[in-house]
Amino acid sequence: MRQLVITSGKGGTGKTTVTAGFLALAWRAVSADADVDAPNLHLLLHPKVLEEKGFKGAKTVVKDPELCTECGKCEEHCRFQAIQNLTPDPFRCEGCGVCAYVCPVGALKLEEVETGRSIVSRTKYGPFSHARLYIGAEASGKLVTEVRKNAEKLGESEKLIIIDGAPGIGCPVIASLSGTDLTLIVAEPSVSGLHDLERVLGVARHFGVDALVCINKYDLCPEMTGEIAHYCLRENIDLIGKIPFDPAVLDVMEQERSVESLLQTEAGKVIEKVWDNVISRLFPDGRETL
């Protein structure tokens, strides 16, 4: 089983659109949405939910008001201003447990809380593992790991897992990259796009993940496209495609038409070429394996 993850240093570069295109081209692969903070892939795949589970990803303090004597020691010792007027604030609580320790009557307890939900679904293109992080929750890296684990379970007898990666370079993106075979970085031709490409490439190299680059909406800024191409050359990374800005893609999305009709657009045709390149890198012995 091989694992491909589509990443981008920043959000909004077209990562999810490319992922969906790949899923339609692969026809049968397991898919996973590792962008648990702002998941979007399900909007294109129209999944049928098979199983949904609460995910306990963090500890937070819970108060038993019956026991509280209002001594105020918790408030005095909390370094995060997470207890105000003797009431714990779950958004601010870091789960350190100091308040529970200083409470003389045991009215405060550290408890594991649900920070999101992990979901397993079926789609036209194969099984799909995804999740949703609750608003204001933390520790999304752990939920990403859960999504990956579910995908691996679903994909035991499959050849390929395609993961829509988390944006950025922090904990969630590390959790979505580590242990995969190849990453396709979708870059945007802008100053910040190049900067973010450099950083995500650093993470990929650190984890020994082979990387390819494609530029989305390349014609919106030919100068920066040129700079990114230069950068790839210098870094010895293959730039395998330049996808044009194509309003037809937006139309497909707005009208919620199928992913197949996305592939009929000009941009879709380039996505198909990019896919061929990705597949020959993932399966050098030939694509009949798929």
């Binding site: 370079i169 922090g170 900067h195 993470v203």
Partner: peptide, 10 residues
């Protein structure tokens, strides 16, 4: 091995 890389400030 290298530790996990973190974010870099701009």
């Amino acid at each position: 091995g290298p530790s996990r890389p973190g974010p870099q400030g701009w």
